[in-house]
Amino acid sequence: MADLVLQGGRIIDPSQGVDRVTDIAFAEGKVVAIGDGLKGDVVRDVTGKIVTPGLIDLHTHVYWGGTSLGVDADMFARQSGVTTCVDTGSAGPGNFHGFRKHVIENSAIRILAYLHVSFAGIYGFSKRVMVGEGQDMRLLAARDAVEVARANPDVIIGIKIRLGRTASGTAGIAPLDVALDVADETGLPLMVHIDEPPPTYEEILERLRPGDVLTHCFRPFPNAPTRGDGTIKPQVIAARERGVIFDIGHGKGSFAWKTARTMIGHGFLPDTISSDVHTLCIDGPAYDLVTTMSKFLHLGLDLPQIIAATTLHPARALRRPELGSLKIGSVGEASVLAVKDGRFPLEDVRDVVETAERRIVAEGVVLNGKWWHPA
């Protein structure tokens, strides 16, 4: 007998090519069956709803209490139907131990991390103080980052660096050299933040390796992936061809309707859709992962494409094949979603508001084979 059965939902699991209405059962923290008429100790009717593998938000900031930009991971997960938050560089080697002890180990959901090369991570990020941690090369702690990454392989899945006028200032692209060195030494992928130049979008892409992630990939001008004539920069095409991963990372300044429409119009879809949730965007314009997903529904992507970009593809980027799937024996995690009809204003980071006729909302979460949301 299963511990939990979700009955009658539309199961969308891109890892198996599954898209049908049926039941799914969980026992002992695992997926144990998919099919009709399943029995369990607890049965929840999810008719009319969508059941997916546990959503993975590949770009979040959840070092709550330890950094000024961190939000509460469990609160965010309940709101957005997320089972795995990937923190992208909130902590560096100087404060990762506190992040692990006080946040990661105490969270109900899974938290994985890209470790920042900056010793104190992203330490100067608020409404009143904005100091780019890459501006001072003295803070880039390569040896410390390698030591901390090697000591925490269960939760540190990559290395993070932030580049741009705000993040690295006059240091420009030089912090990327340090980050690439650390990534090479540890054998981990790199995630690179990009804001306004310098350096340019093209300069950064030319240095990235297969499996590295460029986040904020649909950002607006300046430093957009598109040119003024409406074409995609050739360096973007070349980077995808060699295996660079393009992540949305919506956040406060990194998603524009104009850029997204141009990219999608040329058939260039993001590999992963993520929120980049933090204190300065959780109340808008990003809000959460399901809102970001809703923007791509409005842009014409279908549900299986959007689900793949928030389950299967981020699991591959993380090199964690046990995640992002509802295959028998997979971790007992699922997200329950619904698509609502109506009129929903959705803004980008340039305050351009479009009205969507459909919106994705979170209806529930399964963790460790148990119903978790709402409490």
Rank of each mutant, 00 (worst) to 15 (best):
I307Q: 15
I122H: 00
T231W: 06
T231A: 06
S107L: 11
V131P: 11
L163W: 09
I273F: 06
N95K: 09
L346E: 12
R320N: 14
F125L: 10
A145L: 03
G249E: 12
V361G: 11
I159K: 10
G29K: 04
E203V: 02
A362F: 00
D351I: 01
G329I: 02
S330K: 01
E105K: 04
L188P: 07
N223E: 13
D72C: 01
A338E: 12
P210W: 07
T310A: 14
V43C: 01
R165K: 12
K295R: 15
R150M: 10
I34C: 04
I104E: 11
A25W: 01
V71I: 11
L208I: 12
S330Q: 05
V46Q: 06
V182N: 07
V336F: 00
T310W: 10
L176M: 07
G89T: 09
V86G: 09
A167F: 06
T60P: 04
V148E: 15
G364D: 05
G300N: 13
R219M: 06
R100A: 06
F76W: 02
S274G: 08
R44V: 12
A308Y: 07
V352D: 14
P374S: 06
D41P: 00
I328F: 11
D3N: 14
A151Y: 05
V129R: 15
L346Y: 05
G48A: 09
T292C: 14
I122N: 09
F344L: 04
A338K: 08
S15K: 06
V21T: 15
G35V: 05
G98T: 02
Y114E: 07
A238D: 15
V146Y: 08
